[in-house]
Simulated assay, not measured.
Amino acid sequence: MTDPRTYQPSKDALKDRVILITGASDGIGKAVAIAAASHGAQVVLHGRSVRKLEAVYDEIVNAGAPRPSILPLDFEKAGPEEYEKLVAALEQEFGRLDGLLHNASMLGERAPIEHHDVAKWMRTMHVNVNAPFILTRTCLPLLKKSADPVILFTSSGVVSSPRPFWGSYLVSKWASDGLMSMLAQELEKQPAMRVNSINPGAVKTNMRLQAYPAEDRSKLREAHTIVAAYLYLLGPDSRGVHGQTINAQ
């Protein structure tokens, strides 16, 4: 298998692929969206802030890449109808979906279980686990219309190295990896479908700053330097890679 960390995509590696990226307004999601578009993808930008999404949109267009689409949705507040409308808009505009990257997540509260705020726990679990489940479920019919569909979840180093005081974030990432593994097995008889997780590692993002406020950020990787693994898993060159958790660093 190609090493995803050193993968060098061709200029048109993602040409004409329709890829929905959640949490695309900042950090890793933004970096992947810009990189995917630069390699020919028709990127669908999801986030809560229209203003931030428009800024990413402008950056992609100004670089001469295919014009992206914007789909704002607040996972904390959205109900079934909002998801159905999102998928209906995708179907009307593109007729299919080639890639779905579950990148949006929240850190929640880092606290001992005995002091953890119940409402914050539930919000974190909803955004990090329930929302990817609902979005995957509603997007599966569109993904099945693709000749080479990909679903990519986001894992974390806390899954392989559990530690105290990580609360709902740690549990949600375990659940996310479990959802990926279960879905991958359910779709094994559909050989065109690939389902994997990616662990971005330590990256200079706002969420990382929340988790490690005293950390020396000069030693962290910038988001745009780890996109190779994402492009590999979202593109046709990763055919045959299924049900795995891949490290981006």
Rank of each mutant, 00 (worst) to 15 (best):
G99Q: 00
V118E: 11
P4V: 05
Q92H: 02
G47V: 04
I28W: 10
P112D: 15
L209I: 06
A31S: 13
G201I: 13
V118Y: 14
H46A: 13
L220E: 03
A33E: 07
L209E: 14
H115K: 10
Y83T: 00
P191N: 13
S155Q: 06
K189M: 14
I151P: 00
G99L: 00
V171E: 10
I134K: 09
W166Q: 10
G201W: 13
T245V: 15
E114H: 12
G64E: 02
L20E: 13
P80G: 01
Y7N: 09
K85N: 15
G29V: 06
L187R: 07
F153S: 05
S197H: 01
E81P: 01
R123G: 06
K15N: 14
L152Y: 01
P164I: 03
D58C: 08
K219M: 10
G40R: 12
T22K: 04
V61L: 11
T154W: 12
S160H: 06
G167F: 09
G95H: 14
S218I: 02
E84I: 08
R221Y: 02
E84L: 06
G64W: 07
A65M: 11
R194M: 05
N130Q: 01
D216M: 04
T6Q: 13
L170G: 06
G167R: 10
A78C: 03
K145Q: 02
G235R: 04
V18D: 11
D216I: 00
Q92G: 05
M122E: 15
F165Q: 03
V32H: 04
T124S: 08
P213Q: 01
R96K: 04
G108M: 11
T245C: 14
S160V: 06
R217D: 10
A184K: 10
W121L: 09
A248T: 00
A248W: 00
Q92I: 01
K219R: 14
A55H: 00
Q249Y: 09
P213T: 02
M125A: 12
P132A: 13
H126W: 03
Q249R: 13
S38L: 11
V227P: 05
V56Y: 02
I34V: 15
A192N: 09
N196C: 14
P200L: 01
E93T: 14
M1Y: 01
G178H: 14
M125D: 10
A55E: 13
A65P: 00
V158R: 07
L45G: 06
A63R: 06
T124V: 07
L234Q: 09
K189W: 15
R239K: 14
T245G: 09
V50C: 09
R48H: 13
H46M: 11
F75M: 11
A175R: 04
H115Q: 14
I28Y: 10
A119V: 05
L143N: 09
P72T: 11
